[in-house]
Amino acid sequence: MSEISSELTHINASGEANMVDVSDKAVTVREARAEAWVLMAEETLALIVNGQHHKGDVFATARIAGIMAAKKTAELIPLCHPLALSKVEVQLTPNAERGGVHIQSYCKLAGQTGVEMEALTAASIAALTIYDMCKAVQKDMIIDGVRLLEKRGGKSGDFNA
């Protein structure tokens, strides 16, 4: 793990949860990447990759779900600012060696607060969508490794996992 800050920005002086005021922050380009894995049996992965899943194109559906989720993050995560995203990308890559699907999300905007939560939400919901579409075939899939890979911009600077 990396360094840990002792300052919780969503807690006011009285210890109450509050939304951070970003009105005095400079508008800068903010970017974030996140990832998640959906681990599954070789047969389940083959159904997805070969386009033989009875529910249709699993990757297309998961990609759209991830993009939609990034746009709805402020409705899902308390105290998150609603953001005008300029780009959301969700990539899904089958990985037979690891036995599953690797999901990477990318979010970008010009704004006063970061897009880490949007990138994490996109990757998470894409993973949940894959699980939902494939659960009839395999119930013991594992969603794993949801994490922020990098963030760029803003006062706190850049972060790379």
Rank of each mutant, 00 (worst) to 15 (best):
31 E>P: 02
44 T>K: 00
116 E>L: 01
112 Q>D: 09
160 N>R: 11
159 F>G: 09
85 L>Y: 13
80 C>M: 04
75 E>L: 07
49 V>K: 15
90 V>K: 15
100 G>C: 06
81 H>D: 14
130 I>W: 05
105 S>R: 12
132 D>Y: 01
47 L>C: 06
132 D>M: 01
136 A>T: 06
16 E>F: 05
10 H>L: 05
11 I>W: 03
49 V>C: 09
41 A>I: 02
72 K>Q: 13
136 A>M: 03
8 L>K: 14
51 G>C: 12
11 I>S: 03
137 V>D: 06
78 P>G: 00
39 L>E: 07
98 R>L: 07
113 T>Q: 06
132 D>L: 02
35 E>R: 15
121 T>I: 13
12 N>Y: 13
98 R>M: 05
69 A>E: 15
30 R>E: 06
123 A>T: 13
161 A>S: 11
125 I>V: 15
128 L>D: 04
122 A>K: 14
72 K>S: 11
33 R>D: 07
134 C>L: 04
79 L>F: 11
37 W>Q: 02
18 N>S: 08
146 V>Q: 06
104 Q>G: 03
19 M>S: 11
9 T>F: 00
101 V>L: 05
28 T>H: 11
128 L>R: 05
108 K>L: 15
84 A>S: 11
118 E>A: 06
21 D>E: 07
47 L>V: 03
77 I>N: 08
41 A>F: 03
50 N>V: 08
73 T>C: 13
129 T>E: 03
4 I>R: 14
14 S>D: 14
151 K>I: 06
39 L>A: 00
81 H>G: 12
153 G>N: 03
56 G>R: 09
145 G>F: 04
81 H>R: 14
91 Q>H: 13
146 V>F: 11
31 E>A: 07
78 P>N: 00
132 D>V: 02
59 F>C: 05
113 T>K: 04
57 D>H: 03
25 K>Y: 07
111 G>R: 02
110 A>C: 09
85 L>V: 12
13 A>D: 15
108 K>A: 10
41 A>P: 03
88 V>K: 04
130 I>H: 02
124 S>L: 09
73 T>M: 07
86 S>A: 13
29 V>G: 07
131 Y>F: 08
5 S>C: 10
135 K>F: 02
138 Q>V: 00
158 D>Q: 06
97 E>S: 12
70 A>L: 15
139 K>W: 02
112 Q>T: 12
